[in-house]
Amino acid sequence: MTLSISLTVNGVRTDVAIDDPRVTLLDLLRERLHLTGTKKGCDRGQCGACTVLVDGRRINSCLALAVSHDGAEVLTIEGLASGDRLHPVQAAFIDNDGFQCGFCTPGQIMSAIGLIAEAETGDDPERIREAMSGNLCRCGAHVGIIEAVLDARNRLAEDERRTA
């Protein structure tokens, strides 16, 4: 049985025929839509490498059944930069050396964007560390990652203050 779902991925509405209801959102992105920026580190919700935003919220795409997300808006790492302008969180990851191997990075960045939207941490590093704890990094780039999130969060807050 083929199920047809419609997703808006990085702003583009896509109708996807799903011939197998077992396909997770992560495998749909990676293996069928060939959006491979989103990574699979554990496939079990334990590492955060697969983090994407669904309807504006960060979730683990490896534990989301694609068919169950009919109609959803999905934002992945590929959809962040506009033209050749990096998203401020992406830029902050480069400036603050927020990665080594880069494998956890798409998930860390998507998670950071979700975190900033949730607006619960303020600029308290302890709260940011807690709120980023669903994203593991085996290389040990934690210091740069948290500095990047803090930096980006402050920059965005500053922008908002200025435009308000």
Partner: peptide, 15 residues
């Protein structure tokens, strides 16, 4: 800064 940084923050580094 890392020369591969751009690829890694945009999801275009191909593993």
């Amino acid at each position: 800064t890392r020369r591969d940084g751009l690829l890694k923050v945009t999801g275009t580094a191909t593993f």
